[in-house]
Nucleic acid binder design. Structure first.
Lengths: 159, 159
DNA sequence: GTTAGTCAATTCAAAAATTGAAGTGACCTC
DNA sequence: GAGGTCACTTCAATTTTTGAATTGACTAAC
């Protein structure tokens, strides 16, 4: 499906990247979090070409990330909504925002996150579900399963 | 720099996406978290073309996400390391992993995250820094600043 | 009742990016 | 000195993306 050599990998990161890891897709998802729903608005607000938008929306729908809903029968008109799977991408978008805020910031932050439960504007952060402490870049280490590690040492192209 | 129409946007999400929001870049960063350091290993483990790897590494270095270090003078040989800015992308990678684990999973999880402070294998989660509760997709809402909202309503292509 | 406008697309040629294979240069090992 | 390693570069062929124009099914205004 994707142009890249990332077909069906074992690694869930590689799989996630193959599904939503491109510029326009991430931007579409971002727009959806900002409540953009219609073809023309995506076009207008992202500046992408209509051909590509059309392609990406089809791909995202096929993947179950978004759902197309008719809001008018004649003429046929559609809106796009995130599915549960799509909504669950919020952590990715917020992580990108957090990183952008920290490393690419201008003065203003045009988008803020509100925690509806407590009503506050917040910067959500990653914490350890075990000890409850916030986790930073230095507190974390990736572990590879034994078979995966061996596979990687031997083979070529094992994501 | 990027092929897309995402030059210098106000929105930090759009800026972040412009810097690291493409498939191969995310895969390179992922590999770095798995302690891959050398050109040939990136090539072997990701399956990307050497031309593109070379380009992407140059771009990431120019952006200050990675740093190139000589580990041999003659012949000249280099290793690539994440900078602090690059290491700070860990939350993005983990968010992608979390999403992949949930929505694209096979049986096995070849990569695990260890919290070095408490020594546990964990699934870090986003929490509210204010009330301390875990935040899910439904607990959160995006707020746009007044000027940004107005800009978007009027203009075309305002990320 | 014609003209203009909206909206969700599709079409198509030109431009740009990516692939895949081959090559390069500076070594090291057998 | 033949072959191998490593970090790339080069280049033609393929694939994607862009950008502009067009379509089709309407609705609203004059």
């Amino acid at each position: 499906m994707s142009r890249s050599g990332l077909p069906s990998q074992t690694c869930t990161i590689a799989r996630a990247v193959a599904q939503v890891g491109d510029e326009w897709t991430l931007l579409i998802v971002r727009e959806m979090f900002l409540r953009t729903r219609r073809f023309d608005d995506f076009l207008r607000l992202t500046g992408m070409s209509s051909h590509l938008l059309s392609q990406r929306l089809k791909k995202l729908e096929a993947q179950g990330v978004i759902r197309r809903k008719a809001y008018s029968e004649r003429p046929p008109r559609y809106e796009y909504h995130l599915t549960e799977k799509g909504r669950d991408l919020w952590a990715v978008i917020i992580a990108l925002k957090q990183w952008g805020d920290r490393w690419l910031s201008t003065e203003d932050t045009p988008v803020e996150i509100m925690h509806k439960t407590c009503g506050q504007v917040v910067a959500p952060r990653m914490t350890c579900p075990d000890c409850g402490e916030p986790i930073g870049a230095h507190d974390v280490e990736a572990l590879l399963s034994q078979p995966f590690e061996l596979e990687r040492q031997a083979a070529r192209h094992v994501l």
